[in-house]
Write a protein that binds this DNA or RNA. Structure first.
Lengths: 241, 241
DNA sequence: GTCCGCATCGCTGTATACAATGAAGGGATG
DNA sequence: CATCCCTTCATTGTATACAGCGATGCGGAC
C-alpha cells in the first residue's frame, strides 16, 4: 500500500469519526509529520479529500476540513432517497433471497435486543452491534445491485451523511423502530419484489429523516450544546437509524 | 489557477472527448512534458482522475484510461434515472417558472429546426446547438435544485455517460423526439408540478435508453466497426438525446 | 489615534533528485 | 528446445529543495 493511500484512508476516517472537526486546518507540514511521511504523498491525499468534498482549500490559507451542519441532512436525504430506493429495487431483482432472509431474521432479533436494551450491562454495545448490522445490509445490497457507478455514488453520499448525522443522536426507541423497518426492507428484497422493496426503503428513510428533523428542532429549543458533546462519544460510522 | 488543476481539466476533457481513448497509457513523464509541467502536479491530477473512475492504475504498470463499453450505459442509466427524476422534481418545486418556460420555447424551436435539418447547409451545426441547449437545461435544473451533493453526483455520472454515449450515435429523428420530450420536462417544471416533472423526465430517459439499446443491437448485427469511427467526428460533450 | 503601506514570514505550489519496485529480455541450464 | 533465473531497464513512489504568493504585524504618516 502506498503512503499516499494510507494518508488518505487515515485522514478520511478521522474526518468521518469527528476526530478532525469541521474547520480544522490541515497544515501540510504538520500532518505530514504526524502521519510520518513527506509532503508529496500527503498532498495527493488532500487532493482526494477535496475531490470528495470532505475538505476545501483557499488559495494561500491552506486546506481545512469542510464544515457541515444539520441543514445538510435535508440536502443529503434528497440525494439519499432516490439512491437507496433504486438500490433496494435492483437488489430485489438481482439479490440472493436466502441472504436477505437471513438478514431479515437478524434484524428481527436485533429489534428484540434493542427493546430489552435497558437490561443490558452495556447498552452502547447493543447499539454498536446494530450499526454493524446495518452496514452489513448496505454491503449486501451493494453487492446484489452489482453496479459500481451506483455504489460509488452511495459511498460518497454516506461519507457526508456520517458527518452530518454525528450532529444528532438516537433514542433506543428509534433504533428498535429502525430495526423493524430494516427487517421489512430485507423481507421485500428477499421476496424479489422491487416495488415493495423500494416502498419499504422509502418508508424507512422518510421516518429516519422525520426523526432527525424532529429531534433537532427539540434540541434547538432545549439543549443546543449537546450536539458538540456528541462528538466524543460516538464511535460507530454507520449512516443509519 | 494551479498547474495541477489545469492538468486535471485538460486530461479530463480529453478523456471525455475521446482524444484519450480507453486503455491509453498515461505515462507520468510523457504527459508531464506534453502538458508543460512537472510530475508532481501531474500526479495530483491523475489521483483525481482515478478517484473519478476515469482512470485506473496497476502497481508498476502505470495509469491507464478506464475502459468503457456500451454495456455500461445500462448501469449508468440505473444511476441516472433516479438522479435526474429527483432533480426534475426538486426543480419543479424550487425553480423559477419564467426561466423554464423560456427553455421550453427554445426546445420547441429546436425541434422544428431539427426536423428541417436536411435543408441546412451544416446539419452537424444544428446538432451542436441542440446539445448546447440540453446542457443549458442541465445547468438550469442544477441551479434550481440548489443541492451541491446532488449536483456533484450528477456531474460525476455524466462524465462516464459522455464516454459511454460516444459509442453510440443519434439519428436526426431521435434528436427531434428528444427535443419534444425535453420541452415537456421544461413545461412541467415551469408549472411547478413535481410529479409531472419527474414523470416527464422518466419518459425521456426511458426512451433515450431504449433508443440507444435498440441502436446498439442493430449495430451489432450490421456494422460493429462504426462505433470507433464515431470517435473522431463527435465534438460535443452532451450526455443527452 | 487611526489608517495606510511595506517588509517579513510562513505556507503552499512546483521542480528535481533519489529510491524502490515491477516488467522485460537474454542467457544458462536441465 | 523449453524453462527458469538473473540482470537490466524503465517507471513509479517518495523526499527535499526552491520559488512564489498571501497573510500578518509593525512602523510611519496624516
Amino acid at each position: 500500500m502506498r503512503a499516499s493511500d494510507r494518508a488518505y484512508d487515515t485522514l478520511r476516517q478521522e474526518i468521518l469519526d469527528g476526530v478532525l472537526t469541521p474547520g480544522s486546518l490541515l497544515g501540510e507540514v504538520e500532518q505530514a509529520e504526524r502521519l510520518g511521511l513527506s509532503r508529496t504523498p500527503l498532498r495527493e491525499a488532500l487532493s482526494r479529500l477535496i475531490a470528495d468534498g470532505l475538505a476545501s482549500q483557499t488559495r494561500g490559507r491552506g486546506t481545512v476540513v469542510s464544515s457541515i451542519s444539520v441543514a445538510d441532512v435535508d440536502l443529503l436525504f434528497e440525494l439519499r432517497l432516490p439512491l437507496e430506493v433504486q438500490s433496494a429495487r435492483l437488489a430485489a431483482e438481482r439479490g440472493d433471497p436466502a441472504r436477505f432472509t437471513a438478514l431479515a431474521d437478524r434484524f428481527t432479533a436485533a429489534e428484540q435486543t434493542l427493546r430489552a436494551r435497558q437490561r443490558e450491562r452495556d447498552p452502547a454495545q447493543a447499539d454498536e452491534r446494530y450499526y454493524a448490522l446495518t452496514e452489513e445490509l448496505d454491503e449486501a445490497v451493494s453487492e446484489a445491485v452489482a453496479n459500481p457507478y451506483l455504489s460509488l455514488a452511495l459511498r460518497s453520499m454516506r461519507a457526508h451523511l456520517v458527518r452530518a448525522r454525528r450532529l444528532s443522536q438516537h433514542a433506543p426507541e428509534r433504533l428498535a423502530a429502525s430495526a423493524r423497518e430494516h427487517r421489512e426492507v430485507c423481507a421485500a428484497i428477499a421476496s424479489g419484489d422491487p416495488e415493495t422493496a423500494g416502498a419499504a426503503m422509502l418508508i424507512h428513510l422518510r421516518r429516519s429523516l422525520a426523526y432527525i428533523t424532529a429531534q433537532h428542532e427539540t434540541a434547538q429549543h432545549e439543549t443546543p450544546q449537546h450536539q458538540t458533546a456528541q462528538h466524543a462519544t460516538a464511535q460507530h460510522s454507520s449512516t443509519d437509524a
